[in-house]
Every structure is written in C-alpha cells, then in structure tokens.
Design a protein around this nucleic acid. Structure first.
Lengths: 334, 334
DNA sequence: TTCCTGCCATACATCGTTGCAGACCCCAGC
DNA sequence: GCTGGGGTCTGCAACGATGTATGGCAGGAA
C-alpha cells in the first residue's frame, strides 16, 4: 500500500497530527521538528492522499468547466488557457461536454460533476437564468459567455455587441452594402448570436443601410453549417457582397464554399468572422475577424472563480466582467 | 449539509448498510425494503458522495489523459472523442497538458495526477520507455501514439509508416518527384515524426526516387512552423513540387505560406498533410491528408484501459492495437 | 422438537486526512 | 512559589462511504 501520514509520523518520531501540521504550514512548529518531518517525507516518498484530504476538508482543488464541445476550436483554445490559468493557482480543471443538451447542462449544475469540483465555469446554451438559479448550490459559479445576463450571477464575457458593430462598420466603410449574416439563432436575444446580430443591426442603422432579413441565415456554429448557409443563399438567389460569420468556424466554412463556387474573396464578396482562432490567420485568404481577448477572459474568469472559492471575493451580487476586443483586419475583408 | 446515507437510512427505517446494499445492487434484499430505500432516496434527493466512495473503494472512476496541448486541433478532437467514449463506460476524463515538458510528463506518471485517476492515457513526447517503466505503478497505463514501442506497455497507435508511404506514393504517382517533408524531428526514429518520415523514404525507394536531405525541414508541429519551414525552403533556393506536412497543422501553415507567395497549389506545388482534422476539409484548396481512424483509436484505447482497470483484460505483456487509416484525396494534391 | 440452510438486515472497523480541544513545558511577573 | 500565557505537540472524533462478520428469522429436514 501507499505511504500514509502515519508511516511518516512513526519515522519522524512525532504524532500524526504534527505531520499534518507541517504539511499545512501550521505556525508553531520548532524548525528542528519540521525538518525531521520533512526528511521523513522525502525519505519515504510520502504523497498526500488527495481523496482523503478532499473528504475531510470538503475541497477538491478541482474546477468544473462545462461547454458544448471541446473539439470546436474556440472552446479548445479557451479550455487550454483556462487549464493553464487554473494550474497557476493550484487547481485542476475537469471538463464536461454538454453537446448543447439541456439535461446535461442541468446535471452539471447539481449532479456528481458539481460535487467533484469546488466551483464551476459554465457556458449555458440551452437553459435559462431561472433554471440556473433554482439549482444554484452554495458552491461558486461563474458564467462564461453571454447567454445569461442576470445580476444574480458572476459573469465573464466579451463585448459582443460593440465588436460585431465595429466589424460591420468596417465592412460598410469598405463599401459593402449587402452583408449576409450566418449563424443567427432565431428568437434568441441574450446569447452570443443575438448580441452579435444586434451589433450588426446597430452598425447598419448607424450607416443608414436598411436591414434585410433575407440576408440572415440561422444555423449552428460549425464549419459545415457555414458552408451550407452560403450555398443556401447563393442558390436562393440572394445577392450579397459580404458575409459575416458569427464565429470563425462558420466564416471559414462560408469562405470555403464561396471559393469552391468560384466567387472571388474579397473582390466579389468579403468574409469576416468572430473569435480569432489560430486557424483564421492561416486561412487563404486569411480571415478578418474579432479577437475577443481570450487570454483576458481565461485569466479573469479563473481568477474570479478562485477568489470566490477562497473567500477573497465576497460581494453579494454577481460580478460582471467584460473583456476587451481587437479587430483583426486581414485579407478576406481588408 | 448534504444528505448522507445515514439520513436515508433513518428515513427508510433501515440501517446505513442496507442503503449501501441497495445502491450497490446487493442480491438479497426484499423488494419492499428496496422500494422503501429508493423512495427515501428520491424524497431526500440523496446523492452518493463520490469522494467518500473513492476513499473507501480506492477507485475514482476518472481516467487521466496526458497530452502536450489541448489547443492543437488533433488533440482537441481526440480528447473530445475520448471523453465521450469514457462517458459511455461511466468514467470521466481529467486532462493534463504537458506542453512537451519532460518534468510534467514524469509528474503525471507518479504524482497527484496519477493518484486521482484509475488509469492513464499517456502521450509521451519527451521521456523514454525506461523512464516510464521506472515509474509504472500498479495502475493501468495505455500509451497513445508511437513515441514508445515497447512490448512492456499497452499501446494504441496508427499505421504511421504505411499511411505516410501510401500518401507519398500517391504524390509520386501524380508525377511529383521533389517532395519536401516538414516537421521532422532530427534523431528521432520511433516517434510519429520518425515513423512518418520512414514511410516517406520507403515510398521513395520503392519508386526509385533518390532521397534528398535538403528537402527535409525539421520543426515543431504547429501552423506557424509549417509556414516558416516553407519560407525557409523557398528562400534557401530548394526546388520542390510537393510538400508533405507531417501533420495537418503544418501542412495548412505551409499551404498558407505558398499561396501568399503566389505559388499555385496544386499546379506548381502539391500539399498533403496527416490527421484529417475537420479544418482540412474546409481549407482552400481542401487538404489531401491521411485519416487515421480517430474514432477507432478513441474507442479502442478507452476500451483497453477500462478493461484493464476492471480486470477484464489481464494479459501480462502489453496489448498493441494499430488502427486503420484512409487516404483522403482532396484538391491540394489530387 | 432440533438443527440446518437460505434469505435479509445489521454492527463495527476502516480508508487517510483535518478540526477541535487540550496537555505539557518553559519563562516572566507578582 | 504560584499564576498566567505563549509556544509546541498530541489525541480523539469526524468526513461519508464500503467490507467483513455476524445476527435473526423463516421454512424444511431429521
């Protein structure tokens, strides 16, 4: 069996509790004793049993991350950064893929997943604020993204609306007047899709360009959907001189479909996306997009969550953080 | 506090152990008793404390996954599939990013990470078979990828050499004679880079085409490295009519650089990759590559690991699994 | 009746750690 | 010499579950 505290205690000639005290940096221990214990630990190769510690202390030093699909590039990059930020603070991240299924999201909030972790980073897609509030235990929860805007919750988000507006304005100033939007989620207003669509409309208004619903293509946020959406527009005879993909995957799918069909980008149709995933820089033509300050999002959300867990952040209402953004102008929409 | 078994026992009017027995499907329980316990569980909303169970039973129902970087598309897609395969068997996956740092890899093998999990899926990059063997505890370990070929370990891999040879042969049969290879790792022979390079050389031999070391560009496996490698070849005055990126990220970086410099693909230079990440299909031109049977890899490796953990697979030596592959011929190298 | 066997339920110890309360020692102050 | 208090260390209980051993009760065999 593994070496336990008891073995260390025996080897060092002290009580089990003293070993515990050394490990937990208890103040009043004679340097000599401390040294003896540490020597014994080193000699026996003792490692604390995290499960037992967890049972006793009620803390697991693990954070939960709930997102729809880790294979989506944006989430993959985000998860990677979140894990590094957590690691710097002594935490691990346990990931749960919801596949955008409501039941999975609900279970993540109250089921075993919640129990295993000290706090949750949650990207709600299918459930609303009340469903979350009803299941909100005593453990900290930080929402990621913008599906829920509710002052009850901590939230780390990005300037979706402003960024989408800025990007749209950029397309407009380049002379584009019929900008197709793909990836809208009909009926949704508070989510990323809704906010970005809002930004788009505001920029149009600002420029005095009429909004044409025919230019809006609703679909999920994957490359193949982007391609299909563009195909649909072209085959439907809808005229457009630019495509705004509500995320990069969509925009890259759209770009691919346009090129296949012999549409010249950006000459005939400009293409822009949102997220600035690594892939965007290396597309051909490279993709104009919005860089949402992912590092800031990762750092702030982990920071906030850990502060809540360790009791450094105690404000009653939700803390709302909005990360900055940067327009990345590249070849697809110069 | 949370509801415990004791509360359930009291509510159902049975002993704590009987509740435990109901939960663990013990055979001899009167249906009426069982029902009473289940009612109490439902009424109180009892959920088993996984930490306590874990401490007592020594099993956590978690698998560890060690890889270099979750934001690399291949690993992201693989991790996503592994997590789903694990979930089907009642396990969760805890991911550790090694950043290809030897110390992190070593710690994952014996440190707290190992302790938290019932078994490990490990992609060794910086450490060798002996280092692994020296730290191999009693918990199951399945190696992923090919850095280590050693009959002591369970290993799930792909047909790197055959696939690379098949891809190279395809380029040769298309009339390409000077095929640049990017992403080689000098001095390495057993890793993915080494094996794929081997396959390349074998195909050349087979076709009677001489091997030219000037065509081999060593670098890490990211998009920017691929771009830089191609830039280096072009600026070094090396002539080539095809580029074989040892993974897709490299190939896509290379493709981007070629197009930027006005090289026509595939007319002047064909480009091929390895991995068939989703992005490959949507590149422009779409990328010819090798689909390594990722679903098979995910399913088999999780299956093997869980079988080891649950004692269904007990063979002494290492089980070696080699997944099939498929050539995906697309526009970049028709 | 007595004993045994099969079914059902229980008590107790245990996993490895931490929180709480207290024991002990030593020195300063009265 | 006694008291008080700060520093140093210890013992016991507890976290919430499971394994082992065993206790009862029914019904059938002797």
């Amino acid at each position: 069996m593994a070496v336990t505290m008891n073995d260390v205690a025996r080897a060092a000639g002290v009580s089990l509790k003293t070993v515990s005290n050394v490990l937990n940096d208890y103040e009043f221990i004679r340097p000599a004793t401390k040294q003896r214990v540490q020597d014994a630990i080193a000699e026996l190769g003792y490692e604390a049993n995290l499960t037992a510690r967890s049972l006793r202390s009620g803390k697991s030093k693990m954070l939960g991350l709930v997102l729809s699909d880790l294979s989506a590039p944006y989430y993959a990059e985000l998860a990677s950064r979140l894990m590094k930020a957590a690691s710097r603070r002594g935490y691990r991240v346990l990931v749960e893929q919801s596949d955008a299924v409501a039941d999975v999201e609900l279970n993540a909030l109250q089921g075993p997943f919640r129990q295993l972790t000290d706090g949750l980073l949650f990207t709600p897609l299918m459930i609303d604020a009340d469903a979350i509030a009803a299941r909100l235990g005593r453990k900290p929860l930080v929402l990621l993204g913008e599906h829920i805007l509710d002052s009850r919750f901590d939230l780390v988000t990005m300037k979706n609306e402003e960024a989408a507006a800025a990007l749209t304005a950029r397309l407009l100033s380049g002379g584009r007047r019929r900008i197709a939007v793909i990836g809208a989620h009909s009926g949704e207003s508070a989510g990323s899709a809704g906010l970005r669509l809002n930004g788009y409309r505001k920029a149009l208004d600002q420029a005095g360009v009429p909004f044409d619903p025919a230019l809006v293509a609703p679909c999920q946020w994957r490359r193949d959907n982007g391609a299909a959406a563009v195909a649909g527009l072209l085959e439907g005879g809808v005229e457009f001189d630019a495509v705004f993909g509500l995320n990069d995957a969509l925009a890259l799918g759209a770009l691919h479909e346009l090129l296949i069909r012999g549409v010249r980008v950006p000459r005939e149709v400009a293409v822009a996306g949102f997220d600035d995933i690594d892939e965007a820089r290396f597309a051909s033509p490279s993709l104009t997009t919005v860089a949402p300050g992912m590092e800031e999002i990762a750092e702030r959300s982990i920071g906030l969550l850990v502060d809540r867990i360790e009791g450094r952040e105690t404000s009653g209402g939700g803390v709302q953080v909005e990360a900055g953004f940067l327009l990345q102008v590249r070849e697809s929409a110069p």
